[in-house]
């Protein structure tokens, strides 16, 4: 997605499909034809679709791992600091750093931070919340969250040419190709 594109003129061209298989096939052909700036829109996750449009690295797992390690170290560190430094007192002769007793809370902190990162990190990387997006200007796009599948080739693509791209997409779908206005 080209976020720097000006909010006027054409955002891209959009083709509509009735099944995920048709969309997957079209996405593969579009990628093979050299287009790179494109996105597909589906009412449910479609296996292999992100791959087909050339999107491979999502970094969600790495972000969650980082957050989880932070939670783990931070959680244990907090308990260590509390019971050894900030508020050290002798409980029935147990060592100040009685680390086995700290494991449950350390675990909970690990899970908590990982989960927060998984959700908020995922939405942030997706650029959500984002109330406005040019694709919503296509009236038929309302069905992208129900039973239709869309492929949008964006105007920012170096190969993009309004007429030739339209011709190319028209050959893939039996529906009319729509202009996506910014």
């Amino acid at each position: 997605m080209n976020d720097n594109a000006p909010r006027t003129g054409l955002y891209g061209l959009m083709a509509e499909f009735t099944t995920p298989e048709q969309l997957l096939d079209a996405a593969n052909k579009t990628y093979a034809a050299g287009y790179r700036q494109m996105d597909a829109y589906t009412p449910m996750p479609v296996e292999g679709l992100a791959d087909a449009i050339g999107f491979r690295k999502h970094y969600v797992s790495q972000a969650v791992l980082t957050a989880g390690l932070t939670g783990c170290v931070g959680g244990f560190g907090l308990l260590y600091w509390i019971s050894k430094i900030a508020y050290a007192h002798n409980v029935a002769g147990r060592p100040m750093n009685s680390w086995p007793a700290y494991i449950p809370i350390t675990f909970e902190c690990t899970v908590l931070l990982s989960a927060l990162m998984a959700v908020f990190g995922m939405f942030a990387m997706n650029g959500l919340p984002q109330p406005y997006h040019p694709v919503f200007n296509v009236p038929e796009f309302a069905r992208a969250s129900k039973d239709r599948f869309f492929l949008c080739v964006e105007a920012g693509d170096p190969l993009f040419d309004k007429e030739r791209t339209r011709e190319f997409l028209s050959a893939l779908t039996s529906y009319e190709v729509a202009d996506v206005e910014n």
């Binding site: 997605m1 996405a27 996105d39 597909a40 829109y41 589906t42 009412p43 449910m44 996750p45 479609v46 679709l49 992100a50 087909a52 449009i53 999107f55 999502h58 969600v60 797992s61 969650v64 675990f107 909970e108 899970v111 990982s114 989960a115 998984a118 959700v119 990190g121 995922m122 939405f123 990387m125 997706n126 959500l128 919340p129 984002q130 109330p131 406005y132 997006h133 694709v135 919503f136 796009f141 992208a144 969250s145």
Partner: peptide
């Protein structure tokens, strides 16, 4: 809906996040 539009890139991150949440919730 936070402006969710069903983009394949979004779904890809979403599914990974969902899977991780499931993986985290299981031991939790």
């Amino acid at each position: 809906s936070l402006g969710w539009r069903g983009s394949a890139k979004h779904w890809s991150r979403y599914q990974m996040a969902y899977l991780i949440l499931a993986g985290l919730s299981t031991p939790l």
